[in-house]
Structure formats: structure tokens, C-alpha cells
């Protein structure tokens, strides 16, 4: 019964506004998405598959999955620990703590890569020591993981903090008063309450971890088959004018984006889980 008769626009104005919003979105968001798939399939499905099955492409897919498989769980553990500490207790300096967690969002991806080069690179502070002990971080997989963890650092925590703040600590205090220990309380009381929010944060974290370009580009060294993630592989193929190959790999990433969006929307509709923050 949303009778907005009084406080709404005329049919015409409404149509005009909806029309221009859709036109803008179609032009700026939908068209690029369509372009990815169209370019990838330009020379047929066969060429597309050949491009995807090419060994370097497969290596980049494996590496991207590996990076996500390591950095996402790390951020889940951190996100849960940080939001438990922040929302279940009151202590001084809490808002500073939250601000610091958000810090990676306000740093350019390129700078995020640079800081690890300055720390671990051949000319970096720990470079000589690492070199002497034959440990490779920059231009190797550990560097990519570090940069990815940095970039995706706030995702899970910032999704959970507002949610757990809103839920308060009554449930947990009730559980403790009934004799549950900390771990039981977390597992049986807290986790069921926050699972959809956690999943939401993990989705976004994963999408970013697999798709990160700038930070990873700085630390990876672009070694084909070894330190090329999917986005980096897209760049190399594109710069070599292998457009079909570039768009073929890109289309896989676009599918990942679509799956993320669908899963996110399902979470929002089905479980009425509303996204609080302003995004990332």
C-alpha cells in the first residue's frame, strides 16, 4: 500500500527519470559488460576455448585461485577477531582502531604494491637480508599474496562490525551466563547470527582478491606461467594485441563478477540482509 500519490512526480516525470537513469546505467555499466563477452566470442566458441586452455592462461587461473584461497581465509580470521574485539567490549581508542582497519581502502592500489616493494624488494629494507637467505617475496607468489591481503584487508571486518554492533552482546552474555565457554558462545550463538553478513563480506573480499590489478601488478614481475594472475594475464595479452585471448580470460573474470552480484543479490533478497555501508 505505498500510496505516494501526493508526494510523487507525474507519470511523465517519473517515466523520464526512470528512463534516463536506465539509459545512463545501460550506457556506462551494461554496455562494457556486454562488450567483454562479445569480444571474447568474436571469432567463435572454438577460438575462445583455445585461448582459455592455453597453458599460460591455465597457469594464471590456478594462481588466481591459489591467491584467493590463501588471502580470503586470512581476512576471515582477522575480520572475525577484529569485529569480536571491537563490538563485544568497550575500550578507549576503538574508533581509531576502526579507522586504521579501513586505511587500505584509501590507498591507491599502486601505492599498496609499492610499499611491499620498498620493504621486501631487491633495493628494499629487508631486500639484502632476504637475498642472503634466498627468500623471494617480490616478483614471486608471497608478494602477490601480501599485496592482495593488504588490498582486501577491510572487507570482512567492515561488513561484520556494523552488523555485530547492531546485534549487541545480549545473546553472548546470556550464553556465558548459562555456562558456555568463549568458543561455544562464538560457535553456537554469534556465528549463526552473523553468517549472512560474513558470507556477504567474503563474497566481496573474494571478488576483489581475484580481480585486483594495480597492487599485484607492481609486485608480481609479470613472469608468464609463474607470477601472472588472471587480470595481469589479460593485460599482457591485450598489450600483445591478442584481443580474443585477452577478452577470453577477461570474460572468465566477468563471469566471476556476475556470480558475485547474483549471490550478493540473493543474500539481500532472500535473507533480507541489508548492506549497511557505502561500499568500497
Amino acid at each position: 500500500m505505498s500510496q505516494r500519490a501526493i508526494v510523487s512526480e507525474s507519470r511523465f516525470a517519473r517515466g523520464l527519470l526512470i528512463g534516463s537513469a536506465l539509459a545512463f546505467l545501460g550506457f556506462f555499466l551494461l554496455l562494457p559488460l556486454v562488450a567483454v563477452f562479445s569480444e571474447a566470442l568474436k571469432q567463435g566458441v572454438g577460438t575462445f576455448w583455445d585461448a582459455v586452455k592455453e597453458p599460460d592462461a591455465l597457469a594464471s587461473i590456478r594462481l588466481t585461485l591459489l591467491i584467493a584461497a590463501i588471502s580470503v581465509p586470512l581476512n576471515i580470521v582477522f575480520g572475525l577477531a577484529a569485529s569480536w574485539a571491537i563490538t563485544k567490549y568497550s575500550f578507549r581508542g576503538k574508533s581509531l582502531f576502526i579507522t586504521l582497519i579501513d586505511l587500505p581502502f584509501s590507498v591507491s592500489p599502486v601505492v599498496s604494491g609499492l610499499i611491499f616493494v620498498l620493504l621486501f624488494g631487491a633495493h628494499g629494507w629487508l631486500g639484502p637480508w632476504l637475498n642472503a637467505h634466498d627468500v623471494k617475496i617480490i616478483f614471486a607468489v608471497p608478494g602477490i599474496i601480501l599485496a592482495t591481503v593488504f588490498i582486501t584487508f577491510p572487507f570482512v571486518a567492515r561488513e561484520l562490525i556494523p552488523l555485530m554492533m547492531e546485534q549487541g552482546k545480549d545473546d553472548e552474555e546470556a550464553a556465558v551466563s548459562l555456562g558456555a565457554n568463549g568458543w561455544q558462545t562464538f560457535w553456537h550463538v554469534t556465528l549463526p547470527n552473523i553468517r549472512w553478513g560474513l558470507l556477504y563480506g567474503v563474497l566481496l573480499c573474494n571478488a576483489r582478491a581475484m580481480g585486483e590489478f594495480g597492487a599485484v601488478s607492481v609486485v608480481s614481475g609479470h613472469i608468464r606461467g609463474l607470477t601472472n594472475t588472471m587480470p595481469l594475464h589479460v593485460e599482457i595479452l591485450y598489450n600483445e594485441y591478442d584481443f580474443v585471448g585477452a577478452f577470453a580470460v577477461a570474460s572468465l573474470l566477468a563471469v566471476l563478477a556476475l556470480v558475485t552480484l547474483v549471490a550478493k543479490s540473493v543474500l539481500e533478497w532472500r535473507f533480507d540482509y541489508h548492506h549497511g555501508g557505502a561500499g568500497h
Partner: peptide
């Protein structure tokens, strides 16, 4: 859902598209 596409689509993909 489409509005969030830029959050989900890797930037390099957006760039070449």
C-alpha cells in the same frame, strides 16, 4: 544488482572493455 558491477568487475576487465 547491476549498480554494484564496478565493485565486482576487476578493473583491468573494465579497462579493456
Amino acid at each position: 544488482a547491476l549498480v554494484d558491477l564496478p565493485f565486482a568487475l576487476p578493473t583491468a576487465v573494465a579497462g579493456i572493455a
